[in-house]
Design a protein around this nucleic acid. Sequence first.
RNA 1: GCCAGCGUAGCUCAGAGGCAGAGCAGUGCUUUCGUAAAGCAAAGGUCGUGGGUUCAAUUCCCACCGCUGGCUCCA
Length: 604
Amino acid sequence: MKTEDKKLDEIRHSLAHLLAAAVLDEFPDTLLGIGPTIDNGFYYDLKFKKPISPEILKSLEEKIRRYIKASLPFSGEKITSTKAKKLFKDQPFKLELINEFSKEGKDLTIYHTWSKEKNIHLGKHVTCNMSHSACFIDLCRGGHVKNTSEINPDGFKLSHLAGAYWRGDEKNPQLTRIYGLAFKTKKELDEYIEMFEEAKRRDHKKLGYELDLFTFSNLVGAGFPLFTPRGTIVRDLLDSFVWELRREAGYERVDIPHITKKELYETSGHWEKFQDELFKIKTREGHFFAMKPMNCPHHAQIYARKQQSYRDLPQRYASTTKVYRDEQTGELSGLARVRSITQDDAHVFCRLNQVEEEIGKIWHIIDTFYGSFGFELNVRLSLRDEKQKEKYLGSDESWKKAEKALKKIMEDKKAFDKDRVDIGGAAFYGPKIDFTAKDSIGREWQIATIQLDVNQPERFDLSCINEKGGKERIVMIHAAIMGSIERFMATLIEHTAGLFPLWLAPTQIRILPISDKFTKYAESIKEELQSHNLRVDLPSADETLGKRIRQSEIEKIPYIIVVGEKEQKEKNISIRSLVSKEQNTETLKDFIEKTEKLIKEKKS
RNA sequence: GCCAGCGUAGCUCAGAGGCAGAGCAGUGCUUUCGUAAAGCAAAGGUCGUGGGUUCAAUUCCCACCGCUGGCUCCA
């Protein structure tokens, strides 16, 4: 969504300056961080002397609007580092940047905004030109409007406050970030706000409660979702779908315990890297165990149980199982980020020359699975950051080999795009192909990943006996489809706004008799539908029909069957569809046939 | 973990240093209804938890737990 609109970028960038000027005017001893543009507007990081609250946004916004209406000019100039240091002598964050830029030999530019009018006050942190009654100067590479009159005073809005570490490093002081939305017109701003409101309406935390899919308990703890009967139906169906696709690709199910000796992770390399995130357990005999935070080492131990022949490769192990990670509480969020994560995890143990075919199979499963929900997929190649080799395991040679293999597969698939390469995005044991999905309201989510691992086979000494009778090192492919069932459910709920496809709906059909007099007929219909493995319910008729329909719509039940005297006499049913809101009368037989077909095709 | 905001009934929310409030949901009774909210009644609370200040704290202060938005992190 990055804007390529230069003008819009200039507007946003200018607004960031005006925001800083307004803040300095109101809170003169505030320290300035940086104020860049972002996808939907801009922000400015500031260090306030005293904590501030969101109420100040309104008055700052008004002040900025006055600046805009006063038609203030912007102009830039190149300056020496000596002069810059003098100008920003009271701004330590700016001084840090100045020192850095001059060390790197970059040009230093400053941008002025000024006013000659007495009633306009711009935050003044430097002495300005005598002929100006007010001016604001910021260190900045430029990209501004020439005059604030080019900015639509109704096209922006200061949206919220947040904490943010200086330069994104948690060891640095934390600044207060003021976010602003900005567009060229009020209409575009309103549309954006409406999109945001729509996203809020679709919030899976809210819908999860309304649809009775999952819950959290203070006694169980933060980040540990509990799934209701309805939510569990959805989980199981999703998992079965993935399993069907995997079985066709030759996968086998394996089962593993959730606790392991820490030695397993010392061997795999996870202990050193992730021990802070492990839930640790000490036994009564004083041994250390951990809740498993991933499944690969367990699967690797199943592979390692015996000497394997090249004839038996690839071996493809799949488990749907929970892993546990001691995430920082501040990172938890509904189902999107939890501490007990159900992974639909699989690992393929194969020779390097089998990688291409195996990845092709996984790719196909991902396409089928996500395609069936109408997600639009994008692919990205995540590689090791050569400058931070210490963050990764394994030799240069093995990384080179693995990265080359993945790149080739993507090129063959015509899916390689050099703009979609994430340097530093690799897993610590190998490069990966990451899939992102665009949902129905245009948001992009990180979903499946295929990771090629040349390191754990090394660490666990995984090999096969090849044609020549020699021991040959194998590779491992990590292939989760949903990744985390929890996170996938969150994505799916927000993508569908809770309106699941028919095959996935916890209750597919609700039968509503007009009155109790027709309950018997309704029950016969229920039995018939259940005999076709359809998920049906039949609530009692002690509320008005209108109320019961309303309730069913809120619960997002795909089909409502209404039966009364007419239907009973004519031996048919009246059907109301959630998607079309239309009503049809047809025979039960036709309805069942149609429904079964939709379910088989996984359509709505 | 850090910054900011928040925590009152199952849900959405009002209130205030001195008897705890509403709507919806739930329960009981009445109603038996034709495609998005029938009526009546009773009930429902350690005002997140613990400590402090006060004659008195759900309200003010502190700590913890939890939630939201960000930051950092995300095998």
